[in-house]
Amino acid sequence: MSSDQGFFSDVRGPVVPGGGLGKLAWDHRDASLGALPVFTATDDPGPSFGALLSGVGRDWRSAWMPAASAAGSLQQGRDREFQAPHATTVLALRFKDGVVMAGDRRATEGSFIAHRLMEKVLPADRHSGVAIAGVAGPATEMVKLFQTQLEHYEKVEGAELSLEGKANQLGQMVRENLAMAMQGLVVVPLFAGYDLHRHVGRIFTYDVTGGHYEELDFHATGSGGRDARAAVKARWRWDLERSDAINLAVQALYDAADEDAATGGPDAVRGIYPTVAVVTAAGFEKLGDEEVEQSFAEVIASKRESGRMP
């Protein structure tokens, strides 16, 4: 790693008082599980969970990154029989009290549907959420590490990271994934949360190189992202009420599913509806299926009423 202070800076193994005897008693591969992970001042990983994993001899990279050669063959096999599952459309939009995040539930393997129940909008911590598009396996693993990192920081330091600090951390993780992205295993998250200092909802988008950019109003990513963005753009206002913002998110997902084969629409037969979450000063709140179902019913009814086709 280039930077010593980076998220994944490498630190040496833990030490134990007692010198030689202590060293014998420690197994570096499982140091944090077999004995108390205590470090000397110079080796201390600080509040970084990634550095801690390196410090106790667990390579966090192996968590979501298959060997480069394997990823290469995955890429070559793209048009043939084997493909990794992909997650598709996710979006976030600001409204009066915060941010609405939404995502469909479909994961695809080429033209096959791999999963119908995938959750792509997940809480990152109490006041922020992360939505994932891209290759499902590395993306969910990245979210798990991100969630752990935020909570770990909060507990070790006794204070929450700022929203921008959280966005930065996620950017570093995306950057670490660049080698995989070059092989075709692209993970592009969308991060949104409520800024407790500025009292506004904020949205951050990422590119594969880990660059992150703040969006003023709304953003959508994934294969149906363009269609979802167009739908939101047509009706977004800064002073949307909560229910209108939810309906707009649902409408955008509906339009994305209408145009994009990889994006799943509402599934009334199985009772599967997209994930919708609201992040406000009160925290991250995932809506119940009934509320999302109701919102879909309203959107569909208004489409019928106005004579507009889907």
Partner: peptide
């Protein structure tokens, strides 16, 4: 406090693994 931080580290690593 050093023991507390070590406990957090142990718990988070175990929960993650």
């Amino acid at each position: 406090d050093q023991l507390r931080v070590a406990g957090v580290r142990h718990a988070d690593t175990k929960g993650y693994a």
